[in-house]
Design a protein around this nucleic acid. Structure first.
Lengths: 115, 115
DNA sequence: CCCCTAGGTTGACAGATTTCGAAGCAGGCG
DNA sequence: CGCCTGCTTCGAAATCTGTCAACCTAGGGG
């Protein structure tokens, strides 16, 4: 059974083979994190940011939400392994974990129906 | 519930441009549906099933959950536009919406950092 | 027509999520 | 040192979710 201890998630495309239960728990956690409009936008803003990094100070004012709330959503993304943060002087910068995104993308990639 | 207006969801890869708020809500709904281990496994079992279809009667016994609970999860996947169902005599068959999966996969596909 | 099986619907409830305001910590500036 | 600003953590309220037991519906036999 594939261990989830690996930094890279695992697994052949959804449509190729059933995802084992342990892996499902790990992968579902990442999808769950993306399953909120605010977090999906945060994720896209970070991933598409100039230089590959975005400052919280630029993210927060883009939403009609308080600072603590944005901070909470960023924490969820962090704990899901989708972003990494890094304090640099006064500001905190976030960047996307592209390896993780690629793994999720590959999982959903489709092939022809099996049969 | 949230009906998907467009057959194809939209949007360039996450890392290419920020996802607009409206699209984010629609897309996040699909990720949210995948954000549960049981649903992710159901999705993979359906998508990888022989002939591209799976009968509920084969899905239910694969989990330590009651029928109503599986039925609920399948409903969530259906409402997220990820699967379609089809009664055929006594049994109900589910198949994956590959177009939708492809759209989600494309969204998470990564390119080089912008800049 | 009656009943049996496969699934879906309803109602209920414990536990998780989203969101906020208030308070805390870290770094820079006067 | 003292204080401001940026971000995170804490505590609390409203809402949403996962799950089950109980009940209902559709099809296929006796």
């Amino acid at each position: 059974m594939l261990t989830v201890l690996e930094p890279e998630v695992c697994c052949a495309p959804l449509a190729s083979a059933a995802v084992p239960a342990e892996a499902a728990a790990d992968l579902a956690a990442s999808f769950k994190a993306l399953g909120d409009p605010v977090r999906l936008q945060l994720m896209s803003m970070i991933a598409s940011a100039d230089g590959g990094e975005a400052c919280v100070c630029d993210l927060t004012p883009a939403f009609d939400l308080t600072g603590p709330t944005i901070s909470h959503h960023l924490k969820v993304l962090r704990e899901a392994g989708l972003v990494e943060s890094d304090r640099r002087g006064t500001w905190v910068w976030y960047r996307a974990n592209r390896t993780r995104l690629a793994a999720l993308s590959a999982l959903l990639a489709i092939g022809a129906p099996t049969a």
